[in-house]
């Protein structure tokens, strides 16, 4: 009996010493902020399922290793947030957005709650957007401001029950127009959705968000949007 007890003590001892607590700290920093249109000072809205990507590369972890890239995708309203980041020095760059390229931030410290806003110039701005319903037609009229000499590729009017409505999230067959030319800010564009022609997907009595979008012909440009407007049809 005594022997067994000794053996058990030994076993406990062995097991206890093998129980070392994981010695790595969990991520303890957060990065958040907003993409802000430098012209209007408003957050820059964009698609939610194809949003701007922020690449984070921790400095001094592995030398010259560019592929250890963490990515974080911004939200539809132009804000972003990642609360699971290890404190440290990072290279931060926002890429593949709906705005003109901005230079990367070669090195910045992320520690605690770190706010980082990006002042950006959208490829296109939707000016004076009006979306209204007349009878069974929803019509959008707007003008487009170009911020560069790149042509406007396409414009569209989108509808969805979700406020993140846009080109990849819409319930009608394409209500779009290929422009493929330079536009003048005084030119008025108009697009409309025939509610009757979409009666099986746009149900009467239900509220929907409508939104105007436009995309530039710049390489890998994403859509720029006006505000989403909600009303019941």
């Amino acid at each position: 009996m005594k022997q067994i007890k000794h053996i058990l003590y030994f076993v406990v001892l062995v097991m206890a010493t093998s129980c070392e607590i994981d010695n790595y700290d969990q991520p303890n920093a957060e990065l958040y902020g907003t993409f802000i249109d430098e012209g209007t000072n408003e957050p820059l809205a964009q698609d939610i399922i194809n949003g701007t990507v922020i690449e984070l590369i921790e400095q001094g972890w592995v030398e010259d290793q560019t592929n250890v890239t963490q990515t974080l995708v911004s939200k539809g309203d132009g804000t972003y947030q990642n609360s699971q980041i290890f404190s440290g020095e990072y290279l931060v760059r926002a890429v593949r957005g709906n705005f003109h390229d901005i230079p990367p931030i070669e090195s910045m410290e992320i520690k605690g709650r770190t706010e980082l806003n990006f002042l950006v110039t959208p490829y296109l701005r939707i000016i004076d957007p009006v979306i209204e319903r007349v009878g069974s037609t929803v019509t959008a009229t707007f003008r487009i401001e170009q911020t560069s000499t790149q042509e406007v590729s396409r414009i569209g009017l989108y509808v969805h029950p979700n406020p993140n409505v846009g080109n990849p999230m819409t319930l009608t067959s394409r209500v779009e127009s290929n422009i493929n030319r330079l536009t003048d800010p005084s030119e008025t564009f108009s697009l409309s959705i025939d509610l009757d022609a979409n009666s099986s997907t746009l149900l009467q009595g239900n509220p929907y968000y409508f939104r105007i979008g436009a995309v530039s012909s710049a390489g890998s440009a994403k859509y720029n949007y006006g505000p989403a407007v909600r009303f019941t049809i």
Binding site: N50, T52, V53, Q65, N67, T69, T71, V73, R96
Partner: peptide, 9 residues
């Protein structure tokens, strides 16, 4: 593997 990743955005 150290392989450069494809564009993820």
């Amino acid at each position: 593997s150290g392989v450069i990743q494809n564009p993820t955005g």
